[in-house]
Design a protein around this nucleic acid. Structure first.
Lengths: 335, 335
DNA sequence: CTGAAAGCGCTTACAG
DNA sequence: CTGAAAGCGCTTACAG
């Protein structure tokens, strides 16, 4: 069944397509007689007309589509952001198309190309390591673009990011006050600057404190987070740890690590203290309440959409970088 | 910066746009001279030509866009499905556009309209209560459509669904063998048939067994799952339960309930046994390993895309309903 | 081997 | 108050 077009309405009403278009779009400039208007609306109703946005897109050079590229939409963090972005995009009349890069620069580029060919009006991306060139290309074209969650060295893209280094520093300082013998940082084996910032914050905070604490680092790959975290924790923590603090630099790492602790009946915070990045409902199932760094996801989505909107509508040519502040939500996982 | 079009290539190469189109699409029917071909490819490369899919869509009446409507993309279950769908769609050259209905029929309809205007080639939807009419309208138009996770009474749409009733029955029977004094089913206050099926499976299994067991039902609204589950559990379970089984009919309910148990130090399975629907990483943080019903998400996505593909390409006019089988993954949460 | 032309469903100056 | 016409970026019979 072919869908009704403006042409059909015009034919039935005995007017031109221009007139139909004017009426349907309620243009003020053009005054169409009440009679004609009424007739057109009625016909549109009865033949069940709905506009073809593809045709409108082609004409207007605006698709009202926004591309979102995250590392993995099935990750809590990104699906929460996606949800917030969806709501805000919808309000501005945009629809979200979504892709997962799997931290793979090639796949990331393919998605960029795909979305660009799909004529999205702008993109919100969590860039992956190695995607500098593609991003720079987009920027050179003045393609409306906003980065979220991450940034890339040497790439001056509009974006919104957490104050990773600062929040890592201040939360580490908070930990330092508790005088742990050992503090273990769990992170990814990665080149992503925002994660290196977190680690740097942890490191410098310890050094600057002048305290004698045994700082250790566990870095895992992306493939087998659960297994790697568990085997390394086993190695570093031993059977009967005490006065040790664990600093998980992401929710995935935290879930993996907490799974290990609960399985091995290691008491938090009695034996081991825990601080985690990011919020997840999963924490609620852990025997002790986890102290964590909360990222302002809603605000992130808000600012990202705003930055994109500015670029798309050229309110200003200088969309900037926005740094948001993490917040330490103190519960009972630190002694 | 305006993007290069086929016209630009034609102008530079001194040929017609038809010729450029033929070359770029490598049509066999038309033989274009090697020279011309080479020239066209080179020019396309240097002026950085990429096809405008919007224009192609308008011409071909195919957008290569697929609409996905779930209840909430930030829910684990749906974001996992979305991820699987994304991968499969991409392989077939489709891009996913995503919307969350929030179990709201009005919002659901708005998304359908929006996606339809966006000219998606087909939709994969988790229908909400009250969306019968909209769905039927789509079906009457032969709009390519697949339902996932759910179905609606009286609506004969192609779709893929879990064997909810059967799996609820068999898993309840499994529970019955353990001779609990009390079995509490935790569900939503809902009209969604697939959820009523689950509950019916639980119920009939108990009745059919002829066993004397105190069966109770907790139904919560969607607004404050955590609070409601916790207060009702407090009421029904008391301080010192024993020989009671909890049957959580969704992952969200399970997370809420397990949070209550862990907070109140109620031992699983010593005091209370637990069986949950759906998988979530969160279970790993709970002190005992949760026995749960695993839905074959990958397969679901697979079948859904296949059903949609059939309809879009008219391989067959009779896309059917597919029932997938849940699997009970037995861990240590049942005595 | 190549091009002129019509058309996909719209919008929008322009003319009357 | 209304319409003819051009155009958005493509594809594709048709003709030569």
């Amino acid at each position: 069944m072919k869908r009704a077009s403006i042409k059909d309405i015009a034919r039935i009403a005995g007017v031109s397509v221009a007139t139909v278009s004017y009426v349907l779009n309620r243009k003020e400039g053009q005054r169409i007689s009440e009679d004609t208007q009424k007739k057109i609306f009625e016909i549109a109703e009865t033949i069940n007309y709905t506009p073809n946005k593809i045709a409108i897109s082609l004409q207007n050079n605006k698709s009202k589509l926004l591309g979102l590229i995250v590392a993995d939409i099935s990750n809590d963090f990104y699906s929460s952001i996606a949800r917030s972005l969806e709501d805000r995009a919808l309000k501005l009349g945009y629809t979200l198309i979504i892709g997962s890069s799997d931290e793979n620069a090639e796949k990331f580029e393919k998605l960029i190309d795909l979305f660009s060919q799909q004529q999205v009006d702008g993109m919100i991306v969590a860039p992956v390591a190695g995607s500098e060139n593609i991003l720079q290309k987009l920027l050179n074209k003045n393609y409306p673009l906003v980065t979220i969650d991450r940034y890339l060295k040497g790439i001056n893209a509009p974006g919104v990011i957490l104050n990773n280094r600062e929040i890592a520093e201040s939360t580490t300082s908070y930990l330092l006050e508790k005088d742990f013998d050992e503090m273990i940082y769990l992170g990814y084996d990665t080149k992503l600057p925002h994660l290196l910032d977190r680690r740097a914050g942890f490191e410098t905070s310890i050094v600057d404190s002048g305290k004698k604490v045994n700082a250790r680092y566990i870095a895992v790959g992306l493939e087998n987070i659960m297994e790697e975290i568990q085997s390394k924790l086993k190695l570093f923590l031993g059977k009967n740890p005490k006065n040790t603090a664990l600093y998980f630099s992401s929710n995935k790492l935290a879930v993996a690590g907490l799974a290990y602790l609960v399985k091995n009946n290691i008491k938090v915070p009695e034996q081991v203290s825990v601080l985690a990045f990011d919020e997840t409902e999963a924490y609620r199932l852990f025997p002790s309440e986890i102290t964590f760094v909360k990222q302002p996801l809603e605000e992130m989505a808000d600012e990202a959409i705003k930055l994109l909107d500015i670029q798309i509508n050229q309110y200003s040519s200088t969309a900037k970088k926005i740094t948001l502040t993490g917040e330490l939500i103190i519960k009972n996982s630190i002694k």
